[in-house]
Write a protein that binds this DNA or RNA. Structure first.
Lengths: 233, 233, 233, 233
DNA sequence: GATGAATGAGTTTTCATTCAT
DNA sequence: GATGAATGAAAACTCATTCAT
């Protein structure tokens, strides 16, 4: 029954089956991946705009312009799609963060400055992404799958910041550098979290520069040799 | 027109009618209020244990041991009950906070220390209450009624902390005391918010004394005359 | 236990029990009847304003300013109250009709004219009463109790009109006077019903004088000796 | 872009894509439409048998043998289904009426006779359809959507009958033909309405031939040249 | 007799998931 | 792989009736 020529939707006609299947598979895979990503994007849009509670399958497919069954086809269900969207959003966050760290002058205080400025930059702290982060935060406590990708002390960020603060504390010659560094790490991450929440709940009052100054004021207080209220010195 | 004596069927004679009616209705009203409060408590339990998304009318009444219709009788619907629960939780938070502030030595740095220690005390930062706060935070962005009672920069807290930081900055003789005070207010509230999130996402790793030290380290950095890493001096 | 003086809410003090009970009973009965009627009136208001479907116990007691339990106390349930309201509305209709018939010149054609004019008068065909009639009509098919009091060919009206048309047919010297009379009776009652419906569905377009003329035109067609298009001659 | 041949998995090759898709979707759509109509039919059955008040979603789906969700899938809610059922019932009424008018001899009096006989024929005035009409009438006053499709002076019927009566009045040489025609139109429609109500409230006593004679008697009274008591002459 | 808080059966509606095509 | 009609469990809500006071 496969012994007939194959005509693809794009008009290509294959007489030889081997190449026909390969081409068809490729086109399918492309379309498959596109659809998969479209669902993730639509899900994130949805979460940002109307919140996780109202993010229904109907909303998602309506935004993606795809069919109802596709969510189960690609992800096996809505919950898995949400988890996948959380994973993807988290990945995007780290991509930006790593890019910004790489661009910084190569010493701990400038690297740390880059982390803070990245977290408060429009690339990271914008209405859509902050909303998504906020929604996933809300769900993380009661949804194990989402919790994995939405975790303040997420090992990556914590280790990253921890390494920087440790070196800075040592360079500053602080007694008990290690304990101090752990405290500053916890504090810095908590502070950023709190400022994100502030941004979301008061988008009009929030001022990016003020927020940076708030952080750097605290840092200049404890590391007066490395920071002033505008950043690393 | 009710200013005449009243004889009840059981023979009791009330000269003052107010007291007669009051007596008759007291138990009714007591039970009514008790049921109303039981619904709020059950709702908060529910939110703490299984999260806002899964907090259904069925769950609430099952925990409260009351009937389905009572939610609509007392609150007019689930949404109003949730809003009322948010209001109540917020009120409880301020009751504790005010009690702790009142108990503190009467100067700004000790009052501020009381605010911080209150926010990190088991009375406020416990599994149930922090979960509830966290859930309402998550809903606040897309639910106006809840937003009212679940607001970082909530005027009360912000004004309270703002007044303290301002006086401390002045006492410390900081240049630009007012701007500095505003920054420290924003920072302190954000920091606490972040530490609460930390507590929730990592309940086993979290250490209350560490968390206090994190905050006081930052404060001792900027107000070395008023704070050391253990609190006000 | 009844051997004590009795103090009524209105301040009267009875030492002798016999008279005390009598007085109390009288006052109770008065209030009882008033409450009973208030419930019927409120029910009819409700039906007129928001329709039978939306006429709930809550709506009725809210309009009557009485307590929830009273409906069951006085009528044994909502359905009985509705039936009683239907009975009362029907009774009121006949009171007006009889009054108008009595006031008419004492011959069949003027009596019939009075029936028609009564049915189209503001006393009978007004927004409230026509709405009530209409709503009960709708319910009559599936509610036996209401059907009893809301019946076109209600024996009373049918007999009343039938007697008049018979005499007029005889006076007019029509062949088959009896059959003709029966047809005109049916037709007249149906016509009035239809005009009431017209009034309700098109309250602004409806014109009382036009409606009368419509009826009298038909009557003057069949009984040219007794009617012209304005009424009996 | 769909203008290319399509090869289905089963080997069928469609040159014209329209027909391919059409074939594939035909059975789907057929079933969809069938279910949609089944819901409307079940709704009308329900209304006829137990009345609008007792017509619940559960009753409808139980009669249709379909699932609960389908009502919202096809109509978006019970209210829309009811409105759609009202629209459909109204359409069916006009289909029969138009068919009967078309079959009549082509002059105004015979056309009008056809309207009257249609309205009193078993095709229109049967237990089911009359019940449905009656129920919708009852709901029309307090339900705007239903009112649209359940209106005595419904422009279509009124215009239709109005045109006929006008021509008959002119042919009969009546003075003030236009006003007379308007009155007879109103009267005829009201009369039919009233007879339908009569049929419903007294299904056993009602006699179709009597009802026709009632109407034609009135018409022969006013248009003796065009009607006798059995119809047009 | 009067009250109104309480009940819970029954209503409409939502929505993740399934599955024939 | 893709579609979208269909499903039905579970959700929120309504409301006549009950009954302790």
């Amino acid at each position: 029954m496969y012994d007939r020529p194959l005509l693809l939707p794009d008009g290509t006609l294959f007489v030889n089956q081997e190449s026909a299947f390969a081409a068809r598979r490729a086109s399918h895979l492309n379309r498959k991946d596109k659809n998969r990503q479209a669902l993730i994007d639509a899900t994130l849009d949805c979460i940002a705009e109307i919140g996780l509670i109202r993010t229904s399958v109907s909303e998602i497919i309506s935004r993606a312009g795809l069919s109802r069954g596709m969510i189960h086809l690609h992800f096996g269900g809505k919950d898995n799609l949400l988890a996948e969207a959380a994973r993807y959003a988290n990945e995007q966050y780290y991509n930006v963060l790593n890019k910004n760290i790489s661009a910084a002058v190569n010493d701990s205080k400038h690297k740390l400055e880059a982390v803070i400025k990245s977290d408060l930059s429009p690339e990271v702290l914008n209405a859509r992404d902050a909303s998504i982060w906020h929604e996933f935060r809300g769900a993380a406590r009661t949804n194990a799958e989402i919790a994995r990708f939405s975790d303040t002390r997420d090992q990556r960020l914590h280790d990253l910041v921890g390494a920087m603060t440790t070196r800075i504390c040592i360079e500053e010659g602080l007694p008990d550098a290690e304990i101090a560094a752990r405290d500053y790490t916890t504090g810095l991450i908590a502070l950023t979290e709190g400022l994100w929440t502030d941004y979301l709940l008061h988008p009009t009052k929030f001022d990016r520069k003020n927020a940076e100054r708030v952080v750097f004021r605290f840092l200049s207080g404890v590391w007066s040799g490395s920071f002033n209220e505008f950043g690393a010195v």
